[in-house]
């Protein structure tokens, strides 16, 4: 029983990393019907830039190595900046003429291009191997009735919960949130109603950059290690979480991310770490085919073309 509870707590901690990235995925799909493949890259970028700044300092010898917290903050800013560049090229200049099936995929293909650019530039600049991140001691633990909880993980979980709540409140109550919801319902109608989509769409990308950057920073602190490849694994599990929770639903992404964390823990426990990939992606494939709405998904989103 104790072991099970410990596993459950571990799954929760693991899942909370996925949750933040899954929320970023679901936000762009829900509002713009756009599967943004740069998301795992932004996650990685924040971690890698954070590492580089805390190891080398600013480029051109402008400074010595920075404190890890400042380095990560700049890493998050870098993720937001890149995300806004992505917005320029995927949405700002997008004009669909015929509405055929590949035309609807233009933003998606663009984002694949950005994924290649950023990921390979990072490899070229920083190399391909994993790097040790000089954060606080990730192994400080708290003993709660026999169950061990790592403090940085607990803090990460709290931050994640806080962000999701703030995001949901923003979507519900603020002007920007209402505008975003109107765009999600019907972009043309939103335009007619006087919502300035050109100004409000970048908000989605800013939030995407912020969420991914933050997740990358929390990851760096928690695991004490960053790598150019770190986005792929997280990205795939976040996508799985988003689909299982239901495309376009923030709470769905939270639920789905936690489900994937649990699924991963159980798979590792029963079948070993090698089979995680099969189980997570297999679950995604099954949900997509049999129950594409997911747990909390909208019926309308993703039903049409890209």
């Amino acid at each position: 029983m104790m072991l099970f509870l410990q596993q459950l707590v571990n799954a929760l901690m693991l899942g909370s990393v996925y949750v933040t990235v899954a929320v970023a995925f679901t936000l762009t799909i829900g509002i713009l019907n756009f599967l943004n493949f740069t998301i795992p890259t932004l996650f990685m970028l924040a971690g890698m830039v954070g590492w580089a700044l805390s190891y080398w300092g600013l480029p051109f010898g402008l400074s010595g190595p920075l404190h890890w917290a400042l380095a990560l903050a700049i890493g998050i800013a870098a993720a937001i900046a890149v995300s806004l560049i992505v917005e320029r090229f995927t949405f700002r200049y997008l004009k669909t003429k015929y509405g055929d099936s590949t035309e609807h995929a233009i933003p998606l293909v663009s984002s694949l291009g950005f994924l290649l650019i950023v990921e390979n530039l990072v490899r070229i600049a920083y190399g391909t191997e994993a790097r040790r991140f000089p954060g606080p001691d990730a192994n400080m633990t708290l003993d709660v009735g026999g169950i061990l909880v790592r403090i940085p993980q607990l803090v990460s979980l709290l931050i994640t919960v806080l962000i999701v709540f703030a995001l949901v409140q923003m979507m519900k109550r603020s002007r920007i949130g209402r505008g975003l919801r109107a765009i999600a319902e019907n972009p043309d109608a939103a335009n007619i109603l006087g919502i300035d989509t050109k100004r409000i769409v970048p908000v989605v990308f800013m939030l995407t950059g912020l969420l991914c950057g933050l997740a990358g920073a929390l990851f760096a602190v928690n695991y004490g290690e960053v790598a150019p490849m770190m986005g792929e694994d997280i990205g795939s599990k976040a996508i799985a979480g988003m689909v299982i929770g239901g495309l376009g639903s923030i709470w769905g992404a939270v639920l789905g991310g936690l489900c994937v964390g649990l699924l991963e823990m159980m798979t590792v426990h029963f079948f070993g770490a090698d089979t995680v990939q099969i189980v997570v992606w297999g679950a995604l494939l099954v949900v997509l085919i049999l129950y594409p709405k997911g747990i909390l998904g909208h019926h309308s989103i993703g039903k049409g073309k890209l």
């Binding site: 019907n33 995929a105 689909v243 089979t275 099969i278 997509l288 085919i289 039903k303 049409g304 890209l306």
Partner: peptide, 27 residues
């Protein structure tokens, strides 16, 4: 089965398929 899916769902389903294949081979 993936005929029922379109757009984002089709992209994800084919992507997931490739990951499952790679995972199966590895194991």
């Amino acid at each position: 089965p993936i005929l029922r899916t379109r757009g984002v769902y089709l992209v994800l389903a084919t992507f997931a398929f490739a990951e499952v294949v790679a995972g199966l081979i590895l194991n």
